[in-house]
């Protein structure tokens, strides 16, 4: 009994030791570490799914609809597949989708925001109007609309989700650029003769990176929920591929009959992963809070 807390402390110390050099000592660091632990654990789970999953996620593994037991720690579904194994394998698609989508929206949103904010004028107003009208839509509804047009597939889901989050990056980066471009050090560079390209790449962009990282984590947290929603509605995968959102929808009809485990575990994982990224994002935004010049 007395062993367990001690182990926890050690885990925490180890984590602190590993992350200390990367994350500056500041308020919010513990949030980041907690978030990283969650995310890294789930990432490892996805990578090592073949090794750690007890059963094949698409094959019969026990009596259908049996509750959690030693053989099936999270129970089995209506087709007798092991839910634990499905949860483990199910992390793969959601992670691939949200990471690729976030990368795509970041690599579109950041440069557009930077250019638009830096040059201003009519172009900026036009781009901002488009972005704002996209931003005004609830993300899930916009994603559904796009996915519905493109048809169900993993790639299309990535496209749909990336489109949804481009305005988030755009707005943050544009706002930051607006304030950065009037800062004294940018004027100093201009007085030293630096041109626009140089000012954007060497003076403004490096100061946007931390913001972009924060937005990256927070938008992933949100994208996880969007992905689960799309998957739930059948816009990403078809049976028998395991995916948390999709499994939620297959388990939903059985909930009224008392088979709670079919949706509880995938649902919990969706929540946990989103929480992990949200912790990282919120924590980082505190670590890099304005006023701390790091």
């Amino acid at each position: 009994m007395a062993e367990k807390p001690k182990a926890n402390v050690e885990v925490k110390n180890l984590a602190t030791r590993i992350f200390k050099p990367i994350i500056p000592e500041a308020e919010g660091r513990n949030m980041v570490i907690a978030g990283l632990i969650i995310v890294i654990t789930i990432l490892l789970m996805a990578v090592l799914a073949d090794v750690i999953a007890p059963y094949n996620p698409t094959k019969f593994a026990g009596k259908p609809l049996s509750p959690p037991s030693l053989q099936n720690p999270m129970g089995t579904d209506n087709l007798g597949r092991d839910i634990l194994s499905r949860v483990i394998f199910g992390s793969r698609i959601v992670l691939v989708v949200v990471f690729s989508a976030a990368m795509v929206s970041m690599s579109i949103g950041v440069p557009i925001g930077l250019i638009s904010g830096y040059f201003g004028g009519k172009l900026d107003r036009a781009i901002s109007m488009v972005m704002d009208s996209m931003y005004a839509f609830p993300s899930l509804i916009l994603a559904i609309a796009i996915a519905a047009v493109l048809g169900p597939s993993v790639v299309n889901a990535v496209v749909a989700i990336s489109v949804v989050y481009v305005p988030t990056y755009f707005r943050m980066v544009r706002g930051q650029t607006l304030s950065l471009k009037s800062r004294l050090f940018v004027e100093a560079a201009r007085a030293a003769g630096a041109g626009n390209t140089r000012i954007m790449s060497k003076y403004i962009f490096p100061n946007l990176v931390t913001t972009a990282i924060v937005v990256f984590s927070l938008s992933i947290a949100d994208a996880i929920l969007t992905e689960a929603g799309l998957s739930f509605l059948g816009f990403i995968v078809t049976a028998p591929t395991p995916d948390w959102g999709f499994d939620l929808s297959s388990g939903r009809p059985y909930l009224p009959s008392g088979y709670w485990w079919m949706i509880t575990f995938p649902g919990f994982m969706v929540m946990l992963l989103a929480l992990g990224f949200a912790l990282i994002g919120e924590g980082l935004s505190e670590v890099y809070a304005p006023g701390r010049e790091r």
């Binding site: 630096a194 003076y203 490096p206 100061n207």
Partner: peptide, 24 residues
């Protein structure tokens, strides 16, 4: 400039502040 806290790029090494004008 007046404000030495705002006139340097917080993400740029001191040395690069001097090199950059020469390269420009």
């Amino acid at each position: 400039f007046q404000d030495p806290y705002a006139s340097l790029n917080p993400k740029m090494k001191i040395g690069d502040h001097l090199i950059d004008p020469l390269l420009i």
